[in-house]
Design a protein around this nucleic acid. Sequence first.
DNA 1: GACAAAACAGGACAACCGGTCTGTTTATAA
DNA 2: TTATAAACAGACCGGTTGTCCTGTTTTGTC
Lengths: 221, 221
Amino acid sequence: MTVRPKAQPGKRTNDPEGLRKRVLDVAEASFQARGYHASSLGDLMAAAGVTGGALHHHFPTKKALALAVIEERVAAAVEETWIAPVQAAGSTREGVRSVFEAVAAELEQQGFVRGCPLNNLAHELSLADPDFRTALAGIFSAWRQAIADKVRADQQAGREQDTDPQRFAALAVATYSGAMSMAKTTQDSAVLRDCLNALEQGVSSARAKRRRRVLRQYKAF
Amino acid sequence: MTVRPKAQPGKRTNDPEGLRKRVLDVAEASFQARGYHASSLGDLMAAAGVTGGALHHHFPTKKALALAVIEERVAAAVEETWIAPVQAAGSTREGVRSVFEAVAAELEQQGFVRGCPLNNLAHELSLADPDFRTALAGIFSAWRQAIADKVRADQQAGREQDTDPQRFAALAVATYSGAMSMAKTTQDSAVLRDCLNALEQGVSSARAKRRRRVLRQYKAF
DNA sequence: GACAAAACAGGACAACCGGTCTGTTTATAA
DNA sequence: TTATAAACAGACCGGTTGTCCTGTTTTGTC
């Protein structure tokens, strides 16, 4: 995985930041792939090329390590894959669509689904420890708020007047989370596209829907 | 928790089915509250009042126990709380609404959120073992199919002509799963109602939406 | 260079985990 | 009753886990 400059006997170079980063890299990946409880510190140490003493120096407990992964890595992942793209998009719906499609494309390319980092840890740790729960809830909150803010920006531009920002944000986050959950379980990213299409059809094709409804009523009787 | 008829020395009554049920009860609850890896067989044995020999007789391995919980309990829970109510409802939307509201009411009544049994285990075990993944994926599939079938029934009754059954089913399941995930993390069931409202507003208020859109365009310029 | 603090090495340990094993008791059928 | 298998009891074991502890090396500061 990551290259570790194995010191020949007698030479050592202290690199606290680099070592800390390596540990976080490995922990993030292992928590994502195997979960918190199934990831042993021994495995992480071996994978990161780090001794017990060094690990304990930077992260006194396993919980401290997980908390750092959540606050520094999971939060950043949500920021990078969701918040920033939505903020940069021309509209909320464009942003949501682009994220769904980007994630689906990435999953299809890499061939398997590891799931959403936030949801993976949220399910395993929310009830295990109040500190975990608080940290994870904060990320969910920021995620939702970013989408709601984007809806409000749309509304100030004269769009989405009939959309409740908070509700839509909740729906978007829930749909994505649930879709990723199913995608992980079925190992098939198609459900992501199904959900996106259903989401868009439901909330934005009002005109087409009304036309069809009239036609159908003719045929129904 | 459950009453265990502790045998006085010399008297014992074999009750294989009852013992098996007690173990499954305890395992289901513990897997739900603490997760699979965080539940030790020792704890389960103590909680169920069962010895190691008895446990091993009915469930040779921890994996076998978990598989039984998934196939017998989690599947039944989805059937009971989702599939049956939706099938019994007058329409898909009524069914979905009633389930969301029933779950939200139950959560508010009991004061805290344990999360969705299926999603909890799906996140922790889907990547851990192919057998787990297959069993869990089957439950998701049945869940989705039941909703999709209900939509098709609606369509044969002349409704929901503009709804794609598969997509709507995926959206409903994903929204519920994701909402429960957030509810568990924030320990607040309000997000369930937010998602339900957003879901219903999005897919069923086409007429009202169109009216508002026209009015807004007047004001916008 | 002297010195203190930070960074790291690596072993030790006690608790715990899941599984196995042997033996005993209960139910079933002949 | 007797044989036969199922049901259960309870101790045991090898391996693992997270954490701690002592010691050594590097780094920064005066």
